[in-house]
């Protein structure tokens, strides 16, 4: 009986303590942030969205290779000799036209792994977090700033130059091959001549040696 009363007393006491805490919070301050009116201040290094400073990109493909989910797509075309693409702000020379630099943010898992290998620090996370879309394809961001016509032109140019280079290389190879052939022939000739001479001289040497 006494036990039962004690138990109920403890129950009531713990309930009242709990109610005391909740009523204190009732009159306390709330922690809610009224979202569209007030916005949370994200730290500078918040990882919310990938951004590429395309002017600094040298098309090295390191980020795409570092991505665990393969959400970065890069196509490059080597620049032709008549165009100087300039240098990045970090001083690396640019050697490629970036015909395509797409990031599928629907696939991205914000792991930050692509940021670190970049030699020119041109790919990084920004703290912009409101970019929902109604259509999934809108989440594929195109960073390349080349016009389609330009892309075609560049591609053609590059192809031409590549063909030219190939041709040159082939010519060189041919020349080299010819030269080598000539040399071989000459060498053969010389060797034959030598041989002819040697045939006569050798025995005399031997003879000398023997004697």
């Amino acid at each position: 009986m006494v036990e039962a009363f004690k138990n109920s007393w403890i129950t009531f006491k713990s309930i009242f303590i709990g109610m005391g805490i909740t009523i204190r919070h009732f009159f306390g301050k709330s922690v809610t942030l009224q979202y569209p009116d007030e916005r949370p201040v994200l730290p500078n290094n918040a990882r919310a969205k990938l951004y590429v400073n395309i002017d600094d990109c040298i098309g090295c493909n390191l980020c795409a290779r570092a991505c665990p989910v393969n959400c970065i797509y890069i196509d490059t075309v080597p620049s032709t000799s008549d165009v100087d693409l300039g240098k990045t702000s970090t001083g690396n020379p640019k050697r490629f036209w970036l015909t395509r630099f797409d990031i599928d943010m629907a696939k991205c898992m914000y792991c930050d792994l692509c940021v670190h290998p970049c030699p020119t620090n041109c790919i990084y996370m920004v703290s912009e977090y409101e970019y929902s879309e109604f259509n999934r394809t809108n989440l594929i961001y195109h960073f390349s700033n080349l016009e389609p016509a330009m892309v075609a032109e560049v591609k053609e140019k590059a192809a031409n130059e590549a063909a030219e280079k190939q041709r040159q290389r082939e010519e060189m190879m041919r020349k080299k091959a010819e030269e080598a052939k000539m040399k071989q022939i000459e060498a053969k000739k010389q060797a034959e001549e030598k041989n002819d001479g040697e045939k006569g001289s050798e025995p005399s040497k031997k003879e000398n040696g023997d004697s």
Partner: peptide, 24 residues
């Protein structure tokens, strides 16, 4: 965590042989 790593839930903060970035 967010200030240190940039993310609130899935941090990818520790790297093999170190940390992805220094703390603030």
């Amino acid at each position: 965590f967010e200030k240190a790593s940039g993310a609130r839930l899935l941090y990818n903060y520790m790297a093999v042989a170190g940390l992805m970035r220094d703390v603030h």
